[in-house]
C-alpha cells in the first residue's frame, strides 16, 4: 500500500463525495425541520396547566437529553421492527434526530419566551387582549429574535451529528467515505476529505450564527434605550 497523499485517488472519489454531501445537507435539513416542530410539542407539554403532564414531559426531555443519540438511533432502528413497524434507515434517522434535538430546541423556545418581560403580559391583560392574540401579536414577535441564535446553533449541531446516521446505513457523507475507504483500502483521503468538507460548511455557518447573535444583541440594546 502506498503511503502519503494521492491526488489522483482524491480526484477520483470527489464526485461520489460531492453527491454524498448533498445527502448530508438534506439529512440535516429534514432532521432540523422535524426537531423544530417536535420542540414546539415539548414546549406545549411544559406550559400546559396540568402538573402531571408537565412532570411527564420534563422526565421525557431529561431522559432523551442525557442518553446518547447513537443508542437512540439503534433503539429506533432495531426495536420498531419488533413491533411490526419497519421503516427505512432514513426515516428512522430523521425521527431520532428530530426527537433528540427537539428536546434541546424546546429549551431554546422556553428561554426565549421567558426572555419576554412579564410586564408585556400584564399590559396585554390590561388592554383586554385574548391569550392567543397576546401570543401572536405581542409575545412571539419579541421572543423569536431571542430564540434565533440558539436555533442556529442547533442547526450546526445537527449538521455535525449527521455522521452518526451512517451507523444505521444512511448513505450520507461519512457513510460514503467509509464505503470508498473500505473498497480501496485507503482511508486517508476519504476521511480527510470528509473533515475538510465539514469545515468548509460548518465554519461559515457558525460565523453566520455568531453574526445573528450580535445583530440580536444590538437590536435588544436598542429596545432598552
Amino acid at each position: 500500500m502506498e503511503m502519503g497523499w494521492r491526488w489522483d485517488f482524491t480526484i477520483e472519489i470527489l464526485p461520489q463525495m460531492a453527491i454524498a454531501t448533498l445527502n448530508t445537507i438534506l439529512a440535516a435539513g429534514v432532521g432540523y425541520a422535524i426537531a423544530l416542530v417536535v420542540g414546539l410539542f415539548f414546549l406545549l407539554g411544559q406550559r400546559t396547566p396540568f402538573r402531571i403532564i408537565n412532570w411527564i414531559n420534563r422526565e421525557i426531555v431529561e431522559f432523551i437529553r442525557s442518553t446518547p443519540l447513537l443508542i437512540q438511533l439503534f433503539f429506533v432502528y432495531f426495536v420498531l421492527p419488533q413491533f411490526g413497524i419497519t421503516l427505512s434507515a432514513w426515516i428512522c434517522g430523521m425521527i431520532t434526530i428530530g426527537l433528540h434535538f427537539g428536546t434541546y430546541l424546546s429549551e431554546v423556545y422556553r428561554g426565549a419566551l421567558e426572555g419576554v418581560s412579564k410586564t408585556q403580559w400584564e399590559a396585554c391583560r390590561a388592554l383586554n387582549f385574548s391569550t392567543l392574540y397576546t401570543y401572536r401579536r405581542i409575545v412571539l414577535p419579541q421572543a423569536f429574535p431571542i430564540a434565533i441564535p440558539g436555533m442556529g446553533n442547533y442547526l450546526v449541531g445537527i449538521f455535525k451529528d449527521t455522521p452518526l446516521l451512517s451507523t444505521i446505513g444512511v448513505a450520507e457523507l461519512f457513510h460514503a467515505a467509509t464505503a470508498v475507504g473500505g473498497y480501496n483500502y485507503r482511508y486517508l483521503e476519504p476521511y480527510t476529505l470528509v473533515g475538510i468538507i465539514f469545515l468548509t460548511l460548518s465554519i461559515p455557518a457558525a460565523m453566520w450564527v455568531r453574526k445573528l447573535e450580535n445583530d440580536v444583541n444590538k437590536a435588544q440594546g436598542k429596545i432598552k434605550k
Binding site: 455535525k160 451529528d161 449527521t162 455522521p163 452518526l164 451512517s166 461519512f174 476521511y191 470528509v194 473533515g195 465539514f198 469545515l199 460548518s202 465554519i203 457558525a206
Partner: peptide
C-alpha cells in the same frame, strides 16, 4: 469545533 467528532 468545525468538524464532526465521529470524523475526528
Amino acid at each position: 469545533r468545525g468538524t464532526s467528532l465521529l470524523v475526528q
